[in-house]
Simulated scan of single mutants.
Amino acid sequence: MRIEQTELTDVLILTPEPFHDERGLFTRTFDADLFDAHLGPGAAAAFVQDSQSRSARGVVRGMHGRGGRGEAKLVRCAHGAVHDVLVDIRPDSPTFGRSRAFLLDDADFRHLYIPAGFLHGFQALTDTADVCYRIDRPHDPAEDLGVAYDDPDLALAWPQEVTVVSARDRAAGSWRALLDSGHLTHRP
């Protein structure tokens, strides 16, 4: 598994190296030793919950974040493909306010390590897309943060027509309101 730094501070791309044979393939989707070697002892053990979502083509989920200490995630697309988007919301980060999109799919098995302090969302690019999340804190709805996926100040570009957005995501606040809220995550 290769681990690479992205241009967003502390965001990593993990790329497994699948073994192919006449049966198909085998790949390791997580390796605690490699993860700890890159992020420090105990980093892998910090993950406490695995979740999965399934979305149809064009669905947008996001832009979601967590207040307080934030929430670190390891995200991958187990089936299909997604346009995955991050926005750095850590005021003391050199990449504060910057966004970056990544293609995650079931062809190259790339994962994103998203440290605490990012908004996260994605759009399903295939008829069905399954996204798996490994998070470092139990979910607490009281700490949920959200910015509208179509916020004009963020100006995120979604590659396909947006077909479905949840009522919660349609009602999400603006980037400006988040900046004024005092709920931004500070890096530890």
Rank of each mutant, 00 (worst) to 15 (best):
Q49W: 08
D50T: 12
S51F: 08
Q52L: 15
S53A: 11
S53I: 12
S53L: 01
R54D: 14
R54E: 14
R54G: 13
S55H: 09
A56Q: 15
A56G: 15
R57G: 13
R57K: 14
G58Q: 00
V60T: 01
R61K: 10
G65V: 06
R66P: 11
R66N: 13
R66D: 14
G67Q: 05
G68I: 09
G68K: 03
G70Q: 03
E71S: 13
A72G: 10
V75S: 04
V75P: 04
R76P: 05
C77W: 08
H79T: 15
G80R: 05
G80K: 03
V82E: 08
H83P: 09
D84M: 04
V85Y: 05
V85A: 01
V87K: 10
D88Q: 09
D88F: 07
D88R: 06
R90M: 01
P91G: 05
P91F: 02
P91K: 08
D92R: 12
D92H: 12
P94Q: 10
T95W: 03
T95E: 06
T95V: 11
F96C: 09
G97P: 00
G97N: 04
G97Y: 07
R98I: 09
S99Y: 06
R100L: 11
R100K: 11
D105R: 10
D106C: 05
A107K: 14
F109S: 06
F109Y: 07
F109D: 06
R110E: 05
R110P: 09
H111E: 12
H111P: 00
L112N: 10
L112K: 05
Y113E: 07
Y113H: 04
I114P: 05
I114H: 04
P115L: 11
P115F: 00
A116V: 04
G117E: 03
G117D: 02
G117W: 00
F118T: 10
L119H: 08
H120R: 02
G121K: 04
A124C: 02
A124P: 07
L125G: 00
L125T: 03
T126S: 13
T126I: 08
T128Q: 15
A129V: 07
D130I: 13
D130C: 14
D130G: 14
D130S: 15
V131K: 04
V131Q: 05
V131M: 08
V131R: 11
C132P: 04
R134I: 10
R134Q: 13
D136E: 01
P138A: 13
D140P: 02
D140L: 07
D140Y: 12
P141Q: 07
A142T: 15
E143L: 15
Y149I: 02
D150H: 03
D153V: 12
D153I: 09
L154D: 01
A155R: 06
A155T: 08
A155N: 10
L156A: 00
L156K: 01
L156T: 01
W158P: 02
Q160V: 13
Q160K: 15
Q160I: 11
E161Y: 12
V162A: 10
V164P: 08
V164W: 14
V164S: 14
V165R: 01
A167N: 14
A167Q: 14
A167D: 15
D169L: 07
R170W: 13
A171I: 06
A171K: 05
A171N: 12
A172T: 08
A172S: 03
S174Q: 08
S174W: 01
W175E: 05
R176D: 14
A177W: 09
L178G: 02
L178I: 06
